[in-house]
C-alpha cells in the first residue's frame, strides 16, 4: 500500500491536466468548438435520426419538388418526401460504413506497419511490397469493378471492403514512426530490461503512436464517407437503403437537378451535409494535432 500510494495520483493528475489542455486548446480557437459541435450533431443524427421520423417517411403527392418552406426546410423530392428527413435518416448508413472502414483500416494498417517497422528484415520487405501494391492499384476503379460481384447491402459490408482497400497509407506511416521510435532511449531501455516483445510493442510503442493513429482514423472516416457516397452517386450499386449518395444520384441523373432549379435544394442538401461533416472533422483534427503535438502549442 505504502509503495503504490505515491504512484497512484500521478496518472490521475496527468489525466486531469490532459482534459484541461483539451479545454484550453478548444477555447483558444472557437472554430474548434464548432468542429466538435458539428461532429457531435452528426453522431446524434446517426444514432437517433431514424427514430425521429416514421418509417417509411411520409409522402405528399401534392408537393413534388416543393421549394423550401417552414414545413420542408430543404424542399421535397420527386415523391414529395421531406429532404431534411432524408438527410437525417440517411446519416446512419453513411456514418456506420465510415466507422467500420476506419476500424478495419486502422487495425490492419497499424498491425502491418508495426510488424514491418519493428521486425524489419524479411518481414519488412514483403509487407512493404504488399503495401506498395495496395497503394498503387487504383482504388475507385477497383471498387467499381468489384461492385459487379459484390452488392454491398449492409453498411458494415461496405466498410469491410473499403477498409481492405485502404490500409496502405496508415501502414506506411506507422512503419516509419516505429522505425524512428525503436531507436529511442526508452525502447532501448525496455529491450535492455529484457521485456518481452509484446510488452514493448503494446505498452511502449503503441501509446506514443496512439494520437497519430487516432488522427489518421478520423481522416479515414472522411475518406470512407466520400468513397461510399460516391459509389452510390455513380449508381453502380443497388439502392436498398436511403443515404446521401442515393439522394445525389436520384437528383442528378433522375431529377435533372443540374438542368432545372426546382430540384436544386434536393441536390444541395446532401452536398451541404458532406461539406459540414468535412468541415467538422477537419477542425477536430486541427484541434487534436495541437493537443497531441506539444511543439505546435503556443503558450
Amino acid at each position: 500500500m505504502t509503495v503504490t500510494s505515491p504512484v497512484a495520483p500521478a496518472p490521475l493528475s496527468m489525466r486531469r491536466n490532459f482534459w484541461r489542455g483539451v479545454g484550453r486548446v478548444l477555447r483558444r480557437k472557437p472554430s474548434r468548438m464548432a468542429g466538435v459541435a458539428i461532429v457531435v450533431l452528426f453522431v446524434f443524427m446517426g444514432v437517433f435520426g431514424p427514430l425521429l421520423y416514421p418509417n417509411p417517411l411520409p409522402r405528399d403527392d401534392n408537393a413534388l419538388y416543393a421549394s423550401p418552406s417552414w414545413a420542408h426546410p430543404f424542399g421535397t423530392d420527386f415523391e414529395g418526401t421531406d429532404v431534411l428527413a432524408l438527410v437525417v435518416t440517411g446519416t446512419r448508413y453513411v456514418l456506420l460504413a465510415g466507422l467500420a472502414t476506419a476500424v478495419i483500416t486502422v487495425a490492419l494498417g497499424t498491425l502491418i506497419g508495426l510488424l514491418a517497422g519493428f521486425h524489419r528484415g524479411r518481414w519488412d520487405t514483403v509487407l512493404m511490397r504488399l503495401t506498395d501494391l495496395q497503394l498503387t492499384i487504383p482504388g475507385l476503379p477497383l471498387l467499381l469493378v468489384l461492385s459487379t460481384v459484390w452488392k454491398f447491402t449492409s453498411p458494415i459490408e461496405m466498410g469491410v471492403v473499403l477498409g481492405l482497400l485502404g490500409w496502405g497509407g496508415i501502414a506506411r506511416a506507422v512503419r516509419s514512426q516505429s522505425l524512428s521510435l525503436r531507436e529511442r532511449g526508452f525502447i532501448e531501455a525496455a529491450k535492455g530490461l529484457g521485456l518481452p516483445t509484446r510488452h514493448i510493442v503494446v505498452r511502449e510503442l503503441l501509446p506514443s503512436m496512439a494520437p497519430y493513429i487516432a488522427m489518421n482514423m478520423l481522416i479515414a472516416v472522411t475518406g470512407a464517407i466520400y468513397a461510399q457516397v460516391g459509389l452510390f452517386f455513380l449508381g453502380v450499386l443497388p439502392f436498398d437503403a436511403n443515404n446521401w449518395g442515393v439522394m445525389l444520384n436520384l437528383s442528378v441523373f433522375g431529377g435533372g437537378a443540374l438542368s432545372s432549379t426546382a430540384a436544386l435544394p434536393y441536390l444541395l442538401a446532401p452536398l451541404l451535409a458532406i461539406l459540414l461533416l468535412t468541415l467538422g472533422i477537419v477542425l477536430v483534427v486541427d484541434a487534436m494535432d495541437e493537443i497531441f503535438n506539444p511543439r505546435l502549442r503556443e503558450e
Binding site: 472522411t222 466520400y226 457516397v229 460516391g230 452517386f233 445525389l248 442528378v252 437537378a257 443540374l258 436544386l264 441536390l267 444541395l268 452536398l271 458532406i274 461539406l275 468535412t278 472533422i281 477537419v282
Partner: peptide, 14 residues
Amino acid sequence: HGIPQYVIGLLVVA
C-alpha cells in the same frame, strides 16, 4: 483538399 471531387463538380455545375 478535404472536399471530394464530385462535391466540387456538382457545386460548380449548380
